[in-house]
């Protein structure tokens, strides 16, 4: 969920331009400046990939580009870190794709 409230610690922000991205075949609204991880999280998607060996669900862990747990497929490119990638209009994001590096 996006934060729409305003408080002293988190004053209200206006987001960037609204864009459309496709997540697992579904069109969702996103805002310029958001990361793929934020858009997935805002839409209630917490499993970003399945592990190679045991197919266990994984999601956002370090959130700052270190752990490589949040890998998704973006515009056909595998193993993209959702937490370090900004959305763009028309972007196609796929979760839970085989990850082989």
């Amino acid at each position: 969920m996006r934060i729409e409230t305003s408080s002293h610690l988190l004053p209200k922000v206006t987001r960037g331009k609204q864009v459309q991205v496709t997540v697992d075949g579904k069109t969702v609204a996103a805002y310029e400046g958001e990361t793929v991880a934020a858009v997935l999280t805002a839409n209630g998607i917490h499993t970003f990939r399945l592990t190679r060996e045991h197919k266990h669900p994984r999601g956002l862990y370090c959130g700052m580009g270190v752990c490589y747990e949040c890998l998704v497929r973006v515009d056909g490119v595998d193993n993209v870190r959702a937490c370090m990638t900004a959305v763009a209009d028309g972007m196609v994001v796929e979760t839970c794709k085989e990850v082989e590096l």
Binding site: A38, Y61, G63
Partner: peptide, 30 residues
């Protein structure tokens, strides 16, 4: 990173990661 049973489950995240999601991206993780 501190491993404990279940620490790889989605929804378990670091303080730094949660801070970025909330403060910088303005999205709540749950």
């Amino acid at each position: 990173p501190v491993p404990f049973p279940g620490w790889t489950l989605p929804g378990v995240m670091t303080a730094g990661g949660a801070q970025i999601m909330v403060k910088n991206q303005r999205v709540v993780p749950g």
